[in-house]
Computed example of a mutant assay.
Amino acid sequence: MLFGKRTRIVKRILVVEDEPLVAFDNETMIADAGYEVVATVDRYADAVAQLDESEVDLILSDILLTGERSGVDLAREAKRRGVPVLFVTAHPPAGAEELAIGHLLKPYNERALKAALKAIDRHLAGKLADPPEGLVFYSA
Protein backbone atom coordinates (compact mmCIF):
# COMPACT_ATOMS: atom_id res chain seq x y z
CA MET A 1 0.00 0.00 0.00
CA LEU A 2 1.69 3.16 -1.22
CA PHE A 3 -0.06 5.73 0.95
CA GLY A 4 -1.07 3.55 3.89
CA LYS A 5 -0.49 4.57 7.47
CA ARG A 6 2.74 3.34 8.94
CA THR A 7 2.61 1.32 12.12
CA ARG A 8 3.56 3.26 15.21
CA ILE A 9 6.42 2.08 17.36
CA VAL A 10 5.05 3.97 20.36
CA LYS A 11 1.56 2.79 21.23
CA ARG A 12 1.52 2.45 25.01
CA ILE A 13 2.71 5.32 27.20
CA LEU A 14 3.27 5.45 30.96
CA VAL A 15 2.74 8.94 32.39
CA VAL A 16 4.78 9.76 35.52
CA GLU A 17 3.92 13.19 36.90
CA ASP A 18 3.51 14.54 40.44
CA GLU A 19 1.30 17.53 39.57
CA PRO A 20 -2.31 16.25 39.34
CA LEU A 21 -3.54 18.79 36.79
CA VAL A 22 -0.54 18.26 34.51
CA ALA A 23 -0.93 14.49 34.86
CA PHE A 24 -4.62 14.68 33.92
CA ASP A 25 -3.88 16.96 30.96
CA ASN A 26 -1.12 14.63 29.72
CA GLU A 27 -3.37 11.61 30.03
CA THR A 28 -6.16 13.33 28.08
CA MET A 29 -3.88 14.71 25.36
CA ILE A 30 -2.11 11.37 24.86
CA ALA A 31 -5.38 9.47 24.60
CA ASP A 32 -6.80 12.08 22.21
CA ALA A 33 -3.73 11.58 20.00
CA GLY A 34 -4.57 7.89 19.68
CA TYR A 35 -2.07 6.40 22.12
CA GLU A 36 -2.94 4.10 25.01
CA VAL A 37 -2.15 5.44 28.46
CA VAL A 38 -0.91 2.42 30.42
CA ALA A 39 -1.23 4.30 33.72
CA THR A 40 -0.67 7.68 35.29
CA VAL A 41 1.39 7.56 38.48
CA ASP A 42 3.33 10.02 40.62
CA ARG A 43 5.89 7.79 42.37
CA TYR A 44 8.96 5.87 41.24
CA ALA A 45 7.77 2.63 42.89
CA ASP A 46 4.39 2.81 41.16
CA ALA A 47 6.06 3.42 37.80
CA VAL A 48 8.39 0.42 38.26
CA ALA A 49 5.38 -1.70 39.24
CA GLN A 50 3.72 -0.70 35.96
CA LEU A 51 6.86 -1.69 34.06
CA ASP A 52 6.65 -5.10 35.78
CA GLU A 53 2.96 -5.54 34.95
CA SER A 54 2.46 -3.89 31.56
CA GLU A 55 4.01 -3.49 28.15
CA VAL A 56 5.27 0.10 27.90
CA ASP A 57 6.66 1.66 24.73
CA LEU A 58 7.54 5.08 26.18
CA ILE A 59 7.66 6.72 29.59
CA LEU A 60 6.71 10.39 29.77
CA SER A 61 8.25 11.50 33.06
CA ASP A 62 8.75 14.64 35.07
CA ILE A 63 12.00 14.92 37.02
CA LEU A 64 10.47 15.69 40.41
CA LEU A 65 8.16 12.96 41.67
CA THR A 66 6.28 12.27 44.87
CA GLY A 67 8.52 10.47 47.38
CA GLU A 68 12.26 10.19 47.64
CA ARG A 69 13.03 8.81 44.17
CA SER A 70 13.07 10.99 41.06
CA GLY A 71 12.42 10.77 37.35
CA VAL A 72 16.18 10.39 36.92
CA ASP A 73 16.06 7.23 39.06
CA LEU A 74 13.16 5.98 36.95
CA ALA A 75 15.06 6.71 33.73
CA ARG A 76 17.99 4.61 35.00
CA GLU A 77 15.65 1.67 35.65
CA ALA A 78 13.85 2.16 32.33
CA LYS A 79 17.15 2.24 30.45
CA ARG A 80 18.14 -1.02 32.12
CA ARG A 81 14.88 -2.51 30.81
CA GLY A 82 15.20 -0.98 27.34
CA VAL A 83 12.21 1.37 27.67
CA PRO A 84 12.77 4.89 26.29
CA VAL A 85 12.05 7.89 28.50
CA LEU A 86 11.07 11.40 27.50
CA PHE A 87 11.57 13.89 30.30
CA VAL A 88 8.94 16.62 30.50
CA THR A 89 10.52 19.40 32.51
CA ALA A 90 11.50 23.03 32.52
CA HIS A 91 14.98 22.14 33.79
CA PRO A 92 16.58 18.95 32.44
CA PRO A 93 19.13 17.57 34.91
CA ALA A 94 22.82 17.17 34.23
CA GLY A 95 23.48 13.75 32.73
CA ALA A 96 19.95 13.39 31.34
CA GLU A 97 21.37 12.66 27.90
CA GLU A 98 22.80 9.40 29.27
CA LEU A 99 19.38 8.18 30.41
CA ALA A 100 16.60 9.49 28.20
CA ILE A 101 15.77 9.91 24.54
CA GLY A 102 15.27 13.63 25.12
CA HIS A 103 13.14 16.21 26.86
CA LEU A 104 10.10 18.31 26.15
CA LEU A 105 10.24 21.71 27.77
CA LYS A 106 7.45 22.69 30.15
CA PRO A 107 5.11 24.38 29.75
CA TYR A 108 3.79 22.79 26.58
CA ASN A 109 0.39 22.53 24.95
CA GLU A 110 -1.48 19.70 23.23
CA ARG A 111 -0.09 20.55 19.82
CA ALA A 112 3.50 20.49 21.10
CA LEU A 113 2.99 17.18 22.92
CA LYS A 114 1.42 15.52 19.88
CA ALA A 115 4.22 16.79 17.64
CA ALA A 116 6.81 15.54 20.12
CA LEU A 117 5.25 12.07 20.31
CA LYS A 118 5.11 11.85 16.53
CA ALA A 119 8.77 12.93 16.28
CA ILE A 120 9.80 10.38 18.91
CA ASP A 121 8.08 7.62 16.98
CA ARG A 122 9.97 8.64 13.82
CA HIS A 123 13.20 8.92 15.82
CA LEU A 124 12.81 5.41 17.26
CA ALA A 125 12.11 4.12 13.73
CA GLY A 126 15.45 5.58 12.61
CA LYS A 127 13.86 8.36 10.56
CA LEU A 128 15.75 11.32 11.94
CA ALA A 129 14.40 14.79 11.35
CA ASP A 130 14.50 18.13 13.07
CA PRO A 131 12.49 17.94 16.29
CA PRO A 132 9.52 20.28 16.77
CA GLU A 133 9.92 23.35 18.95
CA GLY A 134 10.39 22.51 22.62
CA LEU A 135 11.65 18.96 21.99
CA VAL A 136 15.34 18.16 22.35
CA PHE A 137 16.75 14.77 21.34
CA TYR A 138 19.85 13.64 23.23
CA SER A 139 21.13 11.09 20.74
CA ALA A 140 21.09 10.52 17.02
Rank of each mutant, 00 (worst) to 15 (best):
M1Y: 11
M1C: 11
F3N: 15
G4S: 15
K5S: 12
K5A: 08
R8E: 03
R8W: 02
I9C: 02
V10D: 03
K11V: 08
L14D: 14
L14I: 09
V16R: 06
E17D: 03
P20L: 04
L21D: 11
V22E: 02
A23F: 01
D25F: 07
N26V: 03
N26C: 14
N26H: 15
E27I: 07
T28M: 13
T28A: 12
M29C: 07
M29Y: 01
A33N: 09
G34F: 02
G34H: 06
E36C: 07
V37Y: 00
V37H: 10
V38D: 08
V41I: 11
D42W: 06
R43N: 13
R43L: 13
D46Q: 13
V48T: 05
D52T: 04
D52M: 09
D52G: 08
D52V: 01
S54E: 15
E55C: 11
V56E: 11
V56R: 04
V56Y: 08
D57R: 08
I59Q: 08
S61G: 11
L65M: 07
T66P: 10
G67E: 06
G67L: 10
E68Y: 06
R69D: 00
V72S: 05
V72R: 05
D73R: 12
L74R: 07
A75L: 03
E77G: 11
A78C: 01
K79W: 00
R80Y: 11
R81T: 10
R81I: 03
G82R: 13
V83Y: 04
V83G: 07
P84S: 09
V85E: 05
V85H: 00
F87G: 02
F87Y: 13
A90C: 02
H91A: 08
A94F: 09
A96N: 09
E98S: 11
E98Y: 01
L99K: 08
I101Y: 00
H103W: 11
L104H: 08
L105C: 11
K106H: 06
K106N: 02
P107F: 03
P107I: 07
P107E: 06
Y108T: 06
Y108I: 04
E110R: 12
R111K: 10
A112E: 15
A115D: 04
K118T: 14
K118C: 12
A119F: 03
I120E: 03
R122Y: 07
H123P: 00
L124F: 01
A125I: 15
G126V: 05
G126W: 01
G126K: 08
L128E: 15
A129K: 10
P132N: 09
P132H: 10
P132M: 07
V136F: 01
Y138G: 01
S139N: 12
S139T: 13
